[in-house]
């Protein structure tokens, strides 16, 4: 697997979340994803970016255009140095929220993408990488 292109942006406010959606949309279009896949990727990015701002105290997003053989993909890695998630299985349960959301952002973005990797340690932070292939 090779990384063709990458970019990092800082995400600390709701204005940044709007920017995340715009940039992720642009990359998805450039990589030739269908309208449905574009919408899924942008929505998943919106969820994880907002979690990072709401719960992780802000963080960074790395975008990577991937290629593997003839496959092309988009990987988005969200990384914050916030409080971390004590119980990942619980956080991934539909409807679980410690804020007053719907509790569907994490589990939903997992369903919207092909790959979902989460690493989190209390007191250190959270890193979530999601990938979509086409």
């Amino acid at each position: 697997m090779a990384v063709q292109k990458d970019e990092v942006m800082s995400v600390t406010s709701s204005a940044d979340i709007v920017l995340v959606r715009q940039i992720v949309r642009k990359w998805s279009v450039e990589l030739g994803f269908s309208l449905i896949d574009q919408t899924k990727i942008v929505t998943a990015a919106s969820e994880l970016a907002r979690n990072m701002v709401d719960y992780g105290g802000g963080g960074k997003l790395r975008l990577e255009a991937l290629s593997e053989g003839i496959r092309r993909g988009l990987r988005l890695t969200f990384e914050d140095t916030g409080p971390g998630i004590p119980d990942i299985d619980l956080a991934l349960k539909d409807g679980y929220t410690t804020g007053n959301g719907l509790g569907l952002g994490l589990s939903g973005s997992k369903r919207l993408m092909n790959e979902f990797e989460i690493y989190s340690r209390v007191g250190e932070g959270t890193r979530i990488a999601i990938t979509k292939w086409r």
């Binding site: 929505t43 919106s46 969820e47 907002r50």
Partner: peptide, 9 residues
């Protein structure tokens, strides 16, 4: 353009 959980809520 995007309906995520916040918009849905």
């Amino acid at each position: 353009p995007t309906v995520d959980t916040l918009v849905a809520q």
